[in-house]
Design a binder for these strands. Sequence first.
DNA 1: CCCATGACTAATT
DNA 2: AAATTAGCCATGG
Length: 103
Amino acid sequence: MDGNFQETVLNLVKQIPAGKVTTYGEIARRITGSVRAARAVAQAVARNPYPIAIPCHRVVRSDGDVGGYSLGVEKKIKLLRAEGIEIGGRKVLNLKHFKIKIN
DNA sequence: CCCATGACTAATT
DNA sequence: AAATTAGCCATGG
């Protein structure tokens, strides 16, 4: 198979440290050079086979909304809170503060 | 190759 | 500030 895109996405996600987050768009930008593939990135992480080992719960929306999660949004919020990320409603507070760029 | 789908985004209302 | 809308792109049928 040639599914290099998903593989690349998951490899980048693996590099996000606990207590930090990034956005679908940032990952897209890192891979394609533009934010336009953000939706494709979401597709890739949505099929993440190992949700805990590969911390896709640390990928959120650009507007601060936590976005979705294969094991349920509530679960995603719990995981993020457990890592010290503050969340109000469905949004990450101070996103700017926790957001990081990937190498 | 065409068409539908979705864990998105930026802009507009 | 919340809701809508159009645009985009990697998959899978």
